[in-house]
Each structure stands twice: as C-alpha cells, then as structure tokens.
Amino acid sequence: MIGKVKVNKSFPAMCQYVLQEKHPEQGAEVIAAHGVRTDSAAHMAQDFDAVRAMRPGLGKAVLHVALAFPAEEQVKLDNTVMGRIAQDYLRGMRIDPENTQWAVVRHHDKAHPHMHLVVNRVDLDGQTISDQFSRSRSVEACKRIEAEYGLIVADQVGRKQAREIGPTPAQAKASSPHEQQSADWSRARHDIGRALSYTARQVRSFDELGAELGKRGIGLELTRRKDGSPAGVVFTHEGHRVKGSQVGREYSAGNLQAGFDRPRVQEQTQSQGQQPAAGLKQAADAYALAKLAAAYAKLSQGQQRGQTPDREQDKGLSIG
C-alpha cells in the first residue's frame, strides 16, 4: 500500500477531479464519506468550503491522498474493505474521522486498486489539522494497515519492480553518456528516497540507519564537525552518490539527527513528570508575572518620587 500525500488550495477543483464528472468512463465511485454530500462535485465542494470558512486565513485547506495497492490485491479489496482502510489511514495520520469532513472515491481506470481521499484540514470544531510530518506518518500508517489486513508489503513490491521492470523512461530515452548518467542518478535517488521513507523514522542513530539501508544495497557516508555534530550525509547506490538534501530536505544530516533525538527528548521530559506543552506554559506564565511585578515596582518608585506614570508605565501594567 502506498499513500501519496499532497496539500492543495481548491476544493471545487479537487472534487471535480476525484468525481470525474466530465469523464464518467474513468469509473469514479464514492465508497465512503463523512460530513459532505456526494451527489455532485459542486455540492461536495460547498460542504467542504462551509467548514473551511471557519479558518479563512488557511490557504491550503485541501488534504489529498492517493492510496494505491498492488494489482494482486484486487479480489481482496472490495469497496467495504477499502472504506475501512481509508478510516484506519486517517487515524494513522492522527485525524479523527468522526470530527472531520472527508470523502473516499475509488477509481477504476488502472489495473491496480486505488482510491482518492479528500480531507478538510479544518475540522468540525474549527481547528486546523497540521500537515507537518505528513509523509512520515503516511508511511507508518500504510505499514500498519498492511500488517493488520495481511496486504502485500509495498516496500518489497517496489524493490522487486525495480529489479524486474528494466530501465525507466528517462533511461530508455537517454541518447548520450551525459543523459544516461543523469537518468541513472535520478533512479538511484528515487530508490534511496523510497528506502529512507521506510527506515528513517524507525531508527534512532546513523549507525542503525546505515545498517537498515545496507540490507537494501544502499550505503551511508557521514561527516562530522569537530564538536561531533553531523555536518553532511551522502547515500551511495549502484555507484551513484546522492546527498541527503538532494533526496529530500528531511533527509539532510541535521534533520535526520533531529529526528533521532526527538524520541529521547520526549522520554526525558516525560520521565521528569512534565509534558513539553506544560513546561512551556509555566515558563511563559513566570515571564509574564515577572514583567508585571517589575512594572508595579517601577510605578511604585515613581509615586514615591511624586512622579505621574507615563504612557510606558501604563502600558507595562497591562502585561499579564
């Protein structure tokens, strides 16, 4: 199972695309929905936009996910099962399917089963659904669903296809050594990116990441600064060298290290009996109280000298 996540601006355009009203031969079929009408693209978009209006400043409110499965799963995946999978996927993305507008539309224009999930990033309480870490969460959600439903593992399919399908279109069209080298490098980068999407969030150090990538025929070279912090990372595959940032911004050395450190920071915070949000709130409250006390002290000193509070002093008293 593979999920491709995108964030877009227009509900009307997205609803027209997934429902394929202008191309009924594509076989678009609504299999599940919550909080929106499904009789037409216009009605569906109106319902999405009515809730979106609670957050008028949110430019990209449309979460669009294409969920695809291997052709071998065609018999297993009827509409009922795919509807359940869509809701499990939403939960895996930390989206409450009972408090969010969404619609799932299955397309029958390809040999493999696939569906399109349209979600409002403004929930029914008017809160914005974050799109941070959407790619990594999607990978984790897909892996859990594969295990729960006994589906073919997409990572294994991808590696098998890479060995069997032969050259990519760019490789086939290459007419010079330079074009061939560029096409080969692009394919290597794609293979590295696929492997990282399945491994980077499952490990907690560069050593562990290197070991997991090694199983997929990918090498990892890390350079460090004098203080020991990571300076750069390069991945090697089939004779090609690809910087982490060239695969994706989240795979730069610094961002990978931040991902490794995040679980440790959370564990340390929880072991101290204090959640991160609570700690930040306490710090903010203490800062506000300190400023208020300083303002009162300044005002008191001015009164003792027979001075009239100026505008800055009045402004200081408003803090808190």
Rank of each mutant, 00 (worst) to 15 (best):
45 A>F: 11
65 V>M: 10
51 V>W: 12
68 A>D: 14
51 V>S: 11
52 R>D: 00
61 A>R: 07
69 F>S: 02
67 L>C: 02
54 M>A: 15
41 A>K: 09
65 V>P: 07
50 A>T: 11
48 F>K: 08
70 P>D: 10
48 F>G: 04
53 A>G: 06
41 A>F: 07
74 Q>G: 00
40 S>L: 01
59 G>R: 14
45 A>I: 02
75 V>W: 05
64 H>N: 15
64 H>F: 03
62 V>I: 03
55 R>A: 15
46 Q>H: 07
76 K>T: 14
66 A>T: 15
75 V>N: 07
74 Q>M: 08
61 A>Y: 10
58 L>D: 12
50 A>W: 02
70 P>S: 01
67 L>N: 13
49 D>Y: 08
69 F>N: 01
71 A>D: 13
57 G>Y: 03
65 V>C: 08
52 R>I: 00
69 F>Y: 13
79 N>K: 15
57 G>N: 14
47 D>V: 06
41 A>T: 09
66 A>P: 00
77 L>C: 10
50 A>L: 01
68 A>V: 06
65 V>E: 07
42 A>K: 13
52 R>V: 06
46 Q>G: 05
49 D>R: 13
65 V>G: 05
68 A>N: 14
56 P>Q: 12
76 K>M: 15
47 D>W: 12
72 E>R: 06
73 E>G: 01
52 R>T: 09
64 H>Q: 15
41 A>C: 07
43 H>F: 10
70 P>H: 00
44 M>C: 15
55 R>K: 14
75 V>D: 04
64 H>C: 03
75 V>S: 04
68 A>M: 06
42 A>V: 13
60 K>W: 02
76 K>A: 08
65 V>S: 07
42 A>E: 03
66 A>F: 08
45 A>V: 07
60 K>E: 15
52 R>S: 05
43 H>M: 04
79 N>M: 00
71 A>R: 01
62 V>H: 03
48 F>W: 04
49 D>A: 04
73 E>N: 08
74 Q>K: 13
59 G>M: 06
67 L>P: 13
64 H>T: 04
71 A>E: 12
54 M>G: 10
77 L>V: 05
44 M>R: 13
44 M>P: 05
41 A>I: 09
60 K>N: 15
52 R>W: 15
56 P>E: 13
57 G>A: 09
47 D>C: 04
68 A>K: 11
78 D>G: 10
75 V>G: 10
70 P>R: 01
41 A>D: 11
59 G>D: 13
69 F>I: 00
73 E>S: 03
54 M>L: 11
58 L>K: 14
56 P>I: 05
57 G>T: 03
68 A>F: 10
59 G>I: 12
66 A>Q: 11
57 G>F: 07
78 D>N: 15
48 F>R: 08
63 L>H: 09
44 M>E: 04
65 V>A: 04
